[in-house]
Design a protein around this nucleic acid. Structure first.
Lengths: 152, 152
DNA sequence: TCACATTTAATTGTTCGCAATTGAATGTAC
DNA sequence: GTACATTCAATTGCGAACAATTAAATGTGA
């Protein structure tokens, strides 16, 4: 007995892993929204803050490499973070092409308010930590294989 | 011997499954770009066409429910598809609140040109079909759990 | 040294994505 | 059958995301 044709149709929406990933991204965004509203951040801004909380006083390029974003996205985003008094943008004196991004005291302080975010997300995902870690590793591996192809 | 602190820091970028998903979405987008350029479509437009190739003459709302997008996103996107002569937008006579989206002959014909896309993506992902299907199912399950929380 | 390439951010223009609002059509309660 | 609520698409405004270009600073080779 042949399985349903739809189960193997390569153009069927439900068979696309890319759509699974795409729609999961938006689902995450919607879960994050109320949590990040309290911090006054959007999700991409939150990602930039995660990078800076690990290490700040870094050039825009470094942030871009970690987040896979370019200056066309980051420049206006960082200006908004600066307008919110969370970061300071300073042109490097050693290499005047670079703009260094440093946290303000408020930017540092916001980390404390952000500590509760990951566990809220964990609760919403309704999934064990080991399961999530395994999924994350698989998705990162897939992403890296895709990115490898782009470079060709 | 304790494992590295960074391995369990919940605010560390590399520990965030949401960032894995977010960055994988962008990686997919970049792989799709050259393929979809040949069809004259963006990735979200391609998703809409996938929906319509399964069944057309459907209201905007139905497309939105399948793709988790609202009219604020779809209305301008569908107008661009109409300007490209791929779809026709007609207000329903039975319920004048609805706008029905139907494929034009060119819209139908584009499906043939799109058939090669999925296998190019499969090749780029450098992954077996069963592995991809398993990942897709896990991600969809996670997405649905996240979406369930949003409705609360 | 001087021409040339490379690096880095910023800018411009187009397309998503969504919240909030609007306005018209439809459904429901009384 | 008239208020009232609901549904549906469109609109507005803002923040990404990215391609393409620009401009300034730096590096390199002859």
């Amino acid at each position: 007995m042949p399985r349903k044709l739809s189960a193997v149709d390569p153009l069927r929406l439900d068979n696309q892993i890319c759509f699974a990933v795409y729609s999961a991204t938006h689902a995450f965004n919607r879960v994050y929204k109320p949590l990040l509203d309290r911090l006054g951040l959007t999700y991409p801004q939150y990602l930039v803050m995660l990078v800076l909380w690990e290490r700040d006083d870094v050039p825009v390029k470094d942030i871009g490499e970690k987040l896979f974003l370019d200056s066309g996205t980051l420049t206006p985003l960082l200006k908004r973070l600066e307008a919110a008094h969370l970061v300071k943008r300073t042109r490097s004196s050693e290499d005047e092409r670079q703009v260094l991004i440093a946290l303000t005291p408020q930017g540092h302080a916001l980390k404390e308010k952000a500590r509760s975010v990951p566990q809220s997300i964990l609760a919403a995902s309704d999934c064990s930590v080991p399961e999530l870690v395994a999924m994350k590793d698989e998705i990162v591996a897939l992403r890296d294989r895709l990115n490898a192809v782009i470079g060709e």
